[in-house]
Design a protein around this nucleic acid. Structure first.
Lengths: 367, 367
DNA sequence: GCTGTCAATGATAACGTTGTCAAATATTAC
DNA sequence: GTAATATTTGACAACGTTATCATTGACAGC
């Protein structure tokens, strides 16, 4: 490798910058207000002095403009712009016990579905002036517990989870926070507070029905041991029995990230006494791993082995022969959750605190 | 669809809970200290009263135990546990002007590479007691600017970006914050502060060399118009020229998320006067989209068309015929960045504020 | 025993905002 | 015009922590 290269080559980035900075619209956004960059931040008192009102009036003008007379409001607005004032969220949170941060915790930030939902939710909430931040729990109860404990100190405006909280103690901690809590991705009968989800049991049932309709008789399951995976398995198992199919193999795993996991799971399945003709994977990553490994082993999909996934990931539609998958509209889920949170945070009386989304079956070539 | 289903079905989640809660180790973690859930939080003063010291001593014992005599330290520790005290981060941040939050902004949280890096970074920082939170900028200068403005109010302990900051005004805002700034994913000669990155220009050069070595003569490029894409293109273009290859088509796009984009780009390329025999895609998602579409169109990879991607995504190795791709070890990048931040945040004098990672070429069947 | 130095602790005063309540002003009713 | 009410504004104190400076006590050196 004899590539001539040094750090300077990359300075193009900054050549680009100059070009970009020439566009007045953007630089205006940045320079708005306070000309230059004063390190000393303006406080409410500074704004108040300039606008010739008391600090508390400034505070009101910013938080609830209707309660301040138009002329003063104008003066205050002007002063805010001149000083480049922005509220100190720490002081505000300290005094009021509230913050404008909405925290979301994802069990796995690498999941396409969760990312889509969180992105949609972020867009809604940021438009409403909230700061939407995401933390990770990595499917670990310990980390989830730690995250929830940190909430007690943070007291965000609201919290959202890509899942439901299972540990009773954590549920109580969350309830004691007295802030809106949004659970998702399942449909328990007793959510902590708000819920935008769907039935995982039904997803399992649908998978069984699809396979039965296609004439499969011996089937297998791959998925997580706990949480939603367990629910999907439950629905699958029940419906298999009902429809007279044999669930000949259940491969239960803890970690489901990475395609290699799906591949090794397929090997597990092939070890079972009775070889199944189809497998339901509790997520698309596992399903794709199976699909890849099947091809590698010369197993024809769907002739020798049918595969159903869950999640309706981007690639499921694209990869030959097309992965049949059950899923929800994740972006819609995030959007709905965001809108519900905003309604609640702005003090509206919510008639419905839960929302159930329909499952979407995308039937493709893999079964 | 006649699936019998109602919300109750999902209550399995909570049956699970009971089982989980029976494990003493976990419930202990939750119940630690303050027995039950007092809504009224304990303050430093409460702890101080119980330990019979002054509040300031408690503060010191928690932040810098070495400065407090062992006997008092013990008493304080005990009092903290009895009261279930946890520090109020808002009060702390208000007074000290610092916080224990480390913010990261990802240009695209749905990217496997960014997710991997952020996850690795989060692990390191959380172990050191920081709260690692992620926001999104969605490759938009407006949102990036908004995010950076919000930093001014938040004053996190440090900030990290999955990229370099291009707008000069934003660079200055960041510098004025006087907190550690971590840029990544490129290797500019004048980073704002800290940097863990690699050369995108070199990535383009490597791609050209690979193709040249395989005997390709007419090649094409697909990628983003700006930022890192532009750098990869620059390196690719330069090296093509040097090696006597013809860059017959450059397809420049703004949005690179989603496989369908790669598919439509392939069509663009096929429209060009001279059909290229190989294409370098500035990321793996685009490359995979091309690969899928090529197969759909009956174009054989690599016989009729060679494809190189960037990012070394999970699926690149798995999908037949195997996607040749150039990338970095994202998890390592995140880990290094996290460790550098911690060193800096704990006041160590850092000898090296930048770190350059090697590019990894994974040669597979697609060229 | 006296002075100087260092470690350990504490008293006081903020940080910048907002909740509470009171005062001032404007508006309406009679 | 006066009284009653509603609207708008402000004074004050507090949220829980930490920076600063002052104090105390311990210990060494002479």
């Amino acid at each position: 490798m004899n590539t001539q290269h040094d750090a300077e080559t990359e300075s193009l980035v900054y050549d680009d910058v100059v070009r970009i900075m020439d566009q007045p619209s953007l630089s205006a956004t940045v320079h708005e207000g306070n000309s230059g960059f004063t390190n000393q931040r303006a406080s409410l008192a500074d704004v108040a002095r300039l606008a010739e009102v008391s600090p508390i009036t400034v505070s009101r003008a910013l938080r609830n403009p209707a309660r301040v007379r138009p002329d003063k409001r104008k003066r205050i607005q002007l002063a805010v712009e001149q000083t480049g004032y922005s509220i100190n969220p720490y002081a505000s949170a300290l005094k009021s016990g509230r913050s404008n941060i909405v925290l979301a915790f994802a069990s796995n930030t690498m999941s396409e579905q969760f990312s889509l939902a969180l992105k949609a939710c972020a867009e809604v909430l940021e438009k409403a002036g909230f700061l939407f931040l995401v933390g990770q729990t990595s499917y670990s109860y310990e980390r989830e517990t730690a995250a929830i404990r940190s909430l007690h100190a943070m007291k965000p405006a609201a919290v959202m989870f890509t899942g439901v909280i299972e540990l009773q103690a954590n549920r109580e901690v969350l309830r004691s926070l007295e802030i809106p809590i949004m659970e998702t991705w399942a449909f328990p009968k007793d959510p902590i507070d708000m819920l935008v989800g769907f039935s995982n049991t039904e997803a399992g049932q649908l998978a069984a029905e699809l396979l039965s309709r296609k004439g499969y008789r011996e089937v297998a399951y791959i998925g997580r041991r706990s949480g939603r995976g367990a629910l999907r398995l439950k629905g699958f198992r029940t419906q298999c029995q009902l429809l007279g199919m044999d669930l000949v193999s259940e491969v239960l795993v803890d970690d489901i990230t990475g395609l290699s996991k799906g591949r090794s799971c397929l090997h597990e399945i092939l070890k079972s006494a009775v070889n199944p003709q189809a497998v339901f994977c509790a997520n698309d990553v596992l399903a794709l791993g199976c699909l890849m490994e099947a091809r590698r082993l010369g197993i024809s999909v769907p002739k020798d082995l049918g595969i159903i996934g869950f999640g309706d990931s981007d690639i499921a539609a694209e990869i030959p022969p097309g992965l049949t998958t059950i899923g929800v509209d994740s972006a819609r889920l995030g959007n709905e959750a965001g809108k519900m949170l905003i309604a609640r945070l702005s003090g509206e009386i919510i008639d419905e605190k839960t929302r159930r989304l329909d499952l979407i079956v995308s039937e493709r070539g893999s079964i």
